[in-house]
Design a protein around this nucleic acid. Structure first.
Lengths: 104, 104
DNA sequence: GCTTCATATCAAAAAATGTCAATATGAAAG
DNA sequence: CTTTCATATTGACATTTTTTGATATGAAGC
């Protein structure tokens, strides 16, 4: 897994928008198709499609095609990766806090 | 802890911007004052101030005033809360995935 | 008190993101 | 192969976020 700042930021773009959080909340109860998400969110079709693309690219959501329908669900693997990434980003690294600053 | 979608989104705004990720990376090695962050990031003073405000409001970073200087560090508590929140957002909820969709 | 220095805030411009309506794509059914 | 239906893509526009430069604030030293 590559860890560029850009890719890392993309993972968390899934969570920094209220509508996407609302979509994820709906997906917590299991796989949903786009039409159902459009119904439950108050949102246009192209707008949902836009958000689903971001969610899928973040790795947090995965999609499954079934004929004309697209079904979305939360990706366990993606969520797990996000957890690890969040941990990594917020955990102090080995080289201790010895950098003294300014006038100190 | 209140859990409005808005507040939840704000937590993750800390992580969805490359510059803020870079700032967090610097803070992983310990507390830093603003002047040092300005040096190491290629960023203007008011721009850093803007990002630090977002980071602090997300709870991920905490600041400490010392005379004229402001020191920033990653908040252990804030990071922990973010982990819990991420877990909550991506974990299937009790009511199983029984909602059948469309033509299924 | 005034001056200096570090940081915050403001207002305008620039850049990025989100929305909407129209159109394209591609699968299924006829 | 034409039509229909679900979703994706596009382009124009609106909204939000970020940057920049100017100014404000507030602590420390004189």
């Amino acid at each position: 897994m590559e860890l560029t700042p850009e890719k890392n930021a993309n993972v968390f773009k899934a969570f920094c928008d209220e509508k996407r959080l609302a979509i994820l909340e709906l997906l917590r109860s299991g796989e949903k198709c786009a039409c159902m998400l459009i119904d439950q969110m108050e949102i246009g079709q192209s707008s949902l499609s836009y958000h689903m693309k971001i969610l899928c690219e973040s790795g947090i959501v995965e999609s499954r095609q079934e004929g004309k329908w697209t079904h979305y669900k939360i990706s366990e693997q993606g969520s797990h990766k996000a957890m690890l990434l969040l941990k990594a980003i917020t955990t102090p690294n080995a080289t201790a806090e010895d950098t003294r600053c300014c006038n100190q």
